[in-house]
Amino acid sequence: MNARAFDLTQLRTFIAIHDAGSISAAAEQIYLSQSTVSEQLKKLEARAGQPLLVRSRKGMRPTPAGTRLVAYARQIAALSEAAFEDLQGVLLDGELRIAITDYYRPHDVGRVLKRFTSLYPRLRLHVSAMQSSQIERTALTGEHFDVGLALRLMNGDVGADDGADDGAAGASTSATLVRRERLVWAMSATLREPVDMPLPLVTLPRPCALQTLVVNVLERHKVPYRVSHSAAGVAGMQLALGAGLGISCLNESALTPDLVVCPPSLGLPALPRAEFHLLPGRADETDLIRHARNALLRLFA
C-alpha cells in the first residue's frame, strides 16, 4: 500500500465505529468480529500517526484528527462506490421520491442526502419526512414514495407487552437493517431534580408507535405521568425538551447538545432499542429506483 494513502476497508470500519459509537456496535452493523474491527482501527491510527477515536462515558468519540478524517473517509468511500457503478454502466438520471422517518439521525440526514446528490447530480430528489407507520403501510403501493426508511422497535428488549414495531401490522420482514440505536429517556440539561410527579411528558401525536411505546411502558410500570406538551414532529420535541417542558424518549442520534439522558435516580423503566430499516423494493420498480436504493443503502448505513 502507498505510504501516503489510506486503506479503504479501514476507512469504512472507522466510519462504522464513529457512527455507532462503539467497537461492539460497529462490529454488529458491519458483520465483523470485535477483534477484527479493533485491529483495523489500530492499523488506521498507526497509518494516521495519531489517535482518531478515544473512549468516553458516552462511547467512542473522535479526536480533532478523527473529526477531520471521517469527513474525508465518507467522501472517499462514496466516490469509490460511485466510480464502480459508473464503470458498470449505472447512470442515475431522473426523479426519485424518498420517505424518511424524522427520527433517523436528524443532525446528519441533510448532509447524507447532500452527499447523495453530489454523487448523482442528474438525479432530482423529493424528500418527505413521514411517520414510520405510514411509510410501512404504503411501501408496497408506490403511491407516495419510491424508497422508504422506517424505524422499528426491537421487541424482546423490555418485554413484548411494551409496544410493537413502529410500522403497520404485518410489515415486511425483508427490509434491510441500516442502523441500530439505544432509546433513552431525555430531558433538558437545565432541568433540575427531583422532577415533579406526575411525570411531565412531551409527546408526539398518535399513531407514532415510539410515543405509544412510551405511554405503554410508563403505565405498565405504574409511573404516573401527565402530557405537558404535544409536539408536531421530532424537531418540535427537541425544542420542547430543550426548553425544560418535560421528559420524553428519543433515539440517541436525535439528542441535541442541550439534552441529556435522564439519570437513574429518576427510576424510569428500561426501553428497547430502535432499528432503522430500508424497505424492500416493489416487484415492478424501475432499474433507476433499484440502483438508487442500493446507493442510498451504503450512505444510510
Rank of each mutant, 00 (worst) to 15 (best):
L149G: 06
A209D: 02
R182S: 14
Q40N: 08
Y72H: 09
H144N: 08
L213N: 02
T176N: 05
E39M: 10
H229D: 10
D165S: 15
T141D: 13
I98G: 00
S22T: 08
H126P: 00
R12Q: 15
S22W: 01
N251W: 03
L204C: 01
G49Y: 05
A160N: 11
L92C: 04
L278E: 00
P64C: 12
R124E: 06
V227F: 04
L204W: 00
P280D: 06
V234P: 00
A235P: 03
V227M: 08
A26D: 03
Q131P: 06
R47M: 11
T256W: 00
G170A: 12
I15C: 12
L41R: 03
S228K: 08
V158A: 10
C208F: 04
I76T: 14
L218Y: 02
P269D: 02
A164V: 14
G246C: 06
H18T: 13
S253M: 05
P263L: 03
R179Y: 15
D196P: 06
L204G: 01
G242L: 05
M154W: 06
V202L: 03
P198N: 13
E285F: 02
D284R: 13
A71T: 13
M187W: 02
D284T: 14
A171Q: 13
L218N: 03
A27H: 11
A150F: 09
L239N: 15
G244Y: 14
G242A: 14
P264N: 04
Q29D: 07
D19S: 15
Q29G: 11
V90F: 00
G156W: 10
G163E: 04
L245Q: 09
S230Y: 03
I98N: 00
T141F: 10
L153D: 02
S265Q: 07
R282Q: 06
A78W: 10
G110N: 11
I247R: 06
L87P: 00
C208A: 07
V54I: 15
L149N: 05
F116T: 03
S128D: 03
V54D: 11
R152N: 07
L69T: 07
P280C: 08
F300E: 02
V223G: 09
P64Y: 14
R12H: 15
